[in-house]
Amino acid sequence: MTLSERMYLPAIAQGLGITIKHFFKKKATINYPEETRQRSDIWRGLHVLKRDENGAERCTACGLCAVACPAEAITMTAGERKKGEEHLYREEKYAVTYEVNMLRCIFCGLCEEACPKAAIFLQDDKLAPARYERDEFIYGKDRLVEPLKTTETK
């Protein structure tokens, strides 16, 4: 090695130059809860149970999504529509309970492919967030069904 190489000082200065360049570089971090990364249009996030154009639930509790689910995350109980509930449920049979266990779900999207009624979809803009209790990861109909559109927004 030459003298300047054995002194290591030029090499150290070079290294310091590299680190100071990174010091002023734009940071790669995305401050998650405040900002979110731009996701692709086919991103598979949190499930939603859709309503039809009249605001009635599309799900008919056929169970095909539960069968398709490789993680066995979906459970449901079916019920019969009563008279006067036509505006709530589109078909004569509907899901009384519909639960997705977000700890089991692998967000593969096979349920939305299996669904014959176009009732379940994985949204591209919502995630199943972290929680403190295991119970809170079981999403029932209260958190899955698409909120009713109010008259103003219709």
């Binding site: 010091f23 940071k27 790669a28 401050n31």
Partner: peptide, 10 residues
């Protein structure tokens, strides 16, 4: 902070 900045973090 400086460690983070040098490693492209915040």
């Amino acid at each position: 902070k400086i460690a983070a900045f040098i490693q492209d973090r915040v």
